[in-house]
Design a protein around this nucleic acid. Sequence first.
DNA 1: CGTTTGCTTGAATTCTGTCAAAGCAGGTGG
DNA 2: CCACCTGCTTTGACAGAATTCAAGCAAACG
Lengths: 189, 189
Amino acid sequence: MNNNIKAIVNNFVNLTEEERLVFSQFLIKKQYKKGDYLLKENDYCNYVGFVDKGFFNFYYLIDGVEHIRGFFFSNEFISNYPCFLLENKSKFYIQALEDSSVTFIHRDDLLMLYEKLPKFQVLSIKIVENLYMEVSEKYESFFLKSPEERYLELMNTSPNFIQRVPQYMIASYLGITPEGLSRIRKRNS
Amino acid sequence: MNNNIKAIVNNFVNLTEEERLVFSQFLIKKQYKKGDYLLKENDYCNYVGFVDKGFFNFYYLIDGVEHIRGFFFSNEFISNYPCFLLENKSKFYIQALEDSSVTFIHRDDLLMLYEKLPKFQVLSIKIVENLYMEVSEKYESFFLKSPEERYLELMNTSPNFIQRVPQYMIASYLGITPEGLSRIRKRNS
DNA sequence: CGTTTGCTTGAATTCTGTCAAAGCAGGTGG
DNA sequence: CCACCTGCTTTGACAGAATTCAAGCAAACG
C-alpha cells in the first residue's frame, strides 16, 4: 500500500497490519495524463480515490461554461461524493491538470469492508463529516469576505495553488470573472 | 413516540416496533418559550433534537452582530452538528423564534444505540450526508445567483418562511443588508 | 509565421453597501 | 386613552466594487 494513503487512513482509523492487508487487496492504481478525465458528466461514480501524484479540477458546465468548484491535490481523497453516495449520474467532470496517479477502491468493495471491518464505516463517516465542514467553511467565507479577501486568503493558505493553476480557473473557483481577478491582482502588487 | 419523528426516522431507516420502543426510552421532550435559547455560545452540544412545534434560528455573533446561518422548522432535526460531532464548544446560538417544543436524544444514548441497533449508525450517516448536500446547494446558489434571485427563490420554495421571519433576519440569512432586501422587495412588488 | 489562448486594460453600467433620516408599527407607562 | 419610545422597515444620496463588452498584448503552439 502506498505510504501516504496508509498515513492518511490512519489519521481517521487505526488499522492493524492484517486489516491493512485486507484493505490493500481492493486497491486499484491508475495513471492519468494531463487533460485526461477521471469522471465525466453522466458517468456513475463508483469509486473513491486517493491522489498519489498530480492534481485535478472538479467542475461542471452551464451553457458550455466551466464552473470550477474544487481541486484535488496529492494526498487528498478524490471523488464526486454526493454522486458516489447516492449512486447518481454525475453532473461534474474531474479532469487531470497534470500527469497524475490515483489509488481507487470500488464502492462494492468498500461496502464489503464495512461488514468485515466495521472500522471502515467510521472512516466513511469521518470523510463525509470532513466534507461537510469544508463546504461549511467555504460557504462561510462567501458571507464574511469580499472576492479580494477570498483571493488573498487563498494566496496565503495555498501559494502553490496559485502557481500551478491558471488564473481563469482560480477566478471561476472564487466565483468572479477573470477580468475581476486580474484587477484584484493589480491592486495587490 | 411522537408520530412525526417516527415518520421522519422511518424515512432514513426502517425500525421494528421493538426497536422503536428501545429508541423512545431515550427521548426527552422540552418546551421553549419565544426568545429562549436551546444553545448558547460556548455551550457543549450533547444532544440532537427534532422540532415538534415552533421554530428556531441558528446564528453567531461577530462584533455583536448576528450572522444567521439557518433556521430549524417543525419536523426537522435540530443541533449544531459540527459541534455535536466533534464535542467542541459551540460558536453558535440557537434561539426559539416562537413557543416551541423539541424531542432530544443525548449523544451517549445515541452512541449506545449504535451498538445495540447498528441501523442507527446508518441514520447518523444519512443525516450528515443530508447536511452536506444542503450546504453544498446553498454554496452553489451563491455562485450562480444574485441576492435578488436568492430571495425570489426563497419566496417560491418556502413562502411560509417569509411570513414568519422578520426581514432583517432573512437579510442576514441571505447575506445582504436589510436596506438591500427592502429594495429587492420593492422592485418585485 | 499566423493562430490560439490567457492575461490585462479601459469605459460604461449596474448592483450593493453605507450612512443618514424618516415612517410606521406595537407596546408601555402616565 | 393618549403620548412616547423602541424596534423594524423604507427611502434617498453617494461611493465602491464587480460585471460586461471590447480591444490590445504576449507567450505558446502548430
